[in-house]
Design a protein around this nucleic acid. Structure first.
Lengths: 211, 211
DNA sequence: TATAATTAAACAAACGTTTAATTAGTTTTG
DNA sequence: CAAAACTAATTAAACGTTTGTTTAATTATA
């Protein structure tokens, strides 16, 4: 386990995350970060070694791991498979919207990042997500509650893609539907609810209905 | 109408698109582009005015417009509303996969771009997509074939998001399912087919089924 | 008094763009 | 038709900034 970070280090990480999510990694200079954080530029190299490693630290700290959650769901005997899937959907939505800034960074870096360490972390995340979805759906199929012919990767893409694209276009959505006056917190609750209902509908239909 | 571009200009645009889609706008230097295109660096400013305007030109040329297609679909009296929606879904999938590199750029720029001209083009695209989806679904509702309570923005997000996320993770998918030996062309056909079937299933369920 | 934190300054490299000179291509003119 | 004049294309070099990182000196903490 790494030693805890000082408040200045956390401040730098947080500021960097904010700026990366707005202007991208290459569009943000270490001077931008340091100035916004009110900390001397040299401290970034001093604390993290380099701008690259600062980014890696953000990934280490903000990457989502749903494995444990899914393991508990699988064990749970009070919920049926569809309820378990609903719970995963909500966990995922909640997790992404709680990490809005990081997830925006992730979306960009999936395309442009060349850092092997970060690529490795992203691959791991995708593999884990795929396996979790597999495990939960196989369970429902074994219990006879889910259909047999399910394209699990595509269904996963629909969950991740729908949430990601909602995150990506939420400002547009707000303006387009004239919700500028709505408080940020309330607007986010609205989106979460809409995502939750919508994706659960899809999952129920694809997993259990005759098509 | 703008005058046609010379072959060198087209060569620069194409090379720039390729590099932007791999390393991002800020991660690609004009020297990178010029070298990869085998053209002198100064020609970029000479032809396009600036790196920014080169990007704008890419957007002008590669942005997708489905408005005309949807207008024709609405007029068409040989298809029922669901068939029309199926046609739109396939058009969209085809359009994105035909513009893979540009769409990857678009995904990044939605997050990090600050250029008002490009922001304007992206807003326009989103507005048009929203309206097209609206028109087509309202038509189906008027004809009594689609359910009344449909969250159209979310359903749009599912189409765009699923296709985008499939595009974003297609390399991972290929490795994860050990399809490395499959030819690029064949692999793409496979993805297109899977996307088409999957999203049409979702649309049919959400638009026409009782939930 | 030793170790850690912080600073302003300096570093070389890379950035987008401009310049001024040269080459290529076209048009005008005797 | 050929020479001259003119415009467009192309080049290498230079421009002034900005980049990430390092240095060496200073301040704070233990």
């Amino acid at each position: 386990m790494k030693p805890d970070l000082s408040s200045k280090q956390l401040q730098l990480l947080d500021t960097a995350e904010l700026l990366f999510s707005k202007k991208g990694f290459d569009g943000t200079s270490v001077r931008d970060i340091a100035e916004a954080a009110g900390i001397n530029t040299a401290m970034i190299s001093y604390y993290f070694g380099s701008k690259e490693k600062l980014m890696e630290e953000i990934f280490e700290r903000k990457s989502m791991n749903i494995r444990e959650k899914v393991d508990n769901l699988i064990k749970d005997e009070t919920m049926d498979p569809l309820e378990k899937m609903y719970s995963l959907v909500d966990t995922y939505i909640e997790g992404i919207l709680q990490r809005k800034r990081f997830h925006r960074i992730l979306l960009c870096e999936q395309i442009i990042n060349q850092n092997p360490h970060i690529i490795g972390m992203m691959e791991k995340m995708k593999t884990r997500n795929s396996e979790c979805m597999n495990d939960l759906i196989r369970l429902g199929q074994k219990k006879g509650m889910f259909r047999k012919n399910i394209d699990i990767p595509m269904l996963t893409n629909t969950l991740v893609g729908t949430v990601s694209h909602t995150l990506l276009t939420m400002d547009f959505y707000k303006n387009y539907h004239h919700l500028e006056s709505m408080k940020e917190e309330e607007f986010e609750r609205l989106l979460k609810k809409k995502l939750s209902v919508h994706i659960k509908n899809i999952y129920k239909a694809i997993l259990t209905h005759e098509l």
